[in-house]
């Protein structure tokens, strides 16, 4: 997992609420046995017609989309299935940060596990950002704040452990493997 410290770049806004993981990566792409190339299929049914031609009115097909590291989406982003393919597809597409006023639980933990930073901002700030499509934002994970295009700074909360892992690009598996003694003790005391 790549470390994340701070990033400045343009925002891409998808204002719809309740964008579910079937939109982010439709089920038919889940037969892959590797996450490589998942970004090509991000939002496939929003970006392409049934013959695979790009849809002109889809903002995700504008050249700036692939150059926007920050996705700002409507409330309750990432609801639905537990498919990790969803944050993987967003990373593959070029996003490093997803911002909303509410992010679904499993999607949030999957994102943290794979190095996509989920940022939950309060509704008023979120509403302002939704109206700033294309403008530049700074996301600073060390300071836990975003700097809006107008220079205003807004703090955000993130679990301290998730923050530590992202800042250091730390793989949680190493942390869990290091718990071996505790796990063995647990197994011995709970399984007679």
């Amino acid at each position: 997992m790549d470390a994340f410290k701070t990033l400045t770049g343009p925002m891409l806004v998808l204002p719809q609420e309740n964008i579910d993981t079937d939109q982010i990566i439709p089920g038919r792409f889940l037969t892959a046995t590797s996450f490589d190339g998942m970004g090509d299929h991000a939002f496939a049914d929003w970006r392409y017609d049934s013959d695979g031609n790009p849809l002109e009115d889809c903002v995700l097909n504008e050249p700036r989309a692939a150059a926007s590291p920050i996705l700002v989406a409507g409330r309750n982003f990432g609801c639905g299935s537990s498919r990790e393919h969803a944050p993987r597809a967003l990373l593959g597409f070029g996003f490093r940060v997803v911002i909303s006023s509410e992010i679904a639980d499993i999607f949030r933990s999957n994102s943290q596990n794979v190095g996509l930073l989920p940022v939950v901002l309060d509704e008023a700030v979120h509403r302002q950002l939704l109206a700033m499509d294309g403008e530049s934002l700074t996301v600073d994970l060390e300071a836990c704040e975003v700097t809006a295009p107008d220079g205003a700074r807004h703090g955000f909360d993130i679990d301290g452990f998730a923050r530590y892992c992202l800042l250091n690009g730390m793989d949680r598996l190493d942390y869990l493997l290091a718990q071996d003694n505790n796990i063995t003790r647990y197994e011995e005391s709970h399984e007679r």
Binding site: R83, E84, I106, N113, R172, L173, L176
Partner: peptide, 22 residues
């Protein structure tokens, strides 16, 4: 509860997960 694929790997390897209590 449901988990992502990276966590599937954690559970295969350690039979454990890292969780904050909901």
């Amino acid at each position: 509860f449901g988990i992502g694929t990276t966590e599937v790997g954690y559970v295969l390897a350690t039979q454990c997960l890292l969780q904050r209590k909901p």
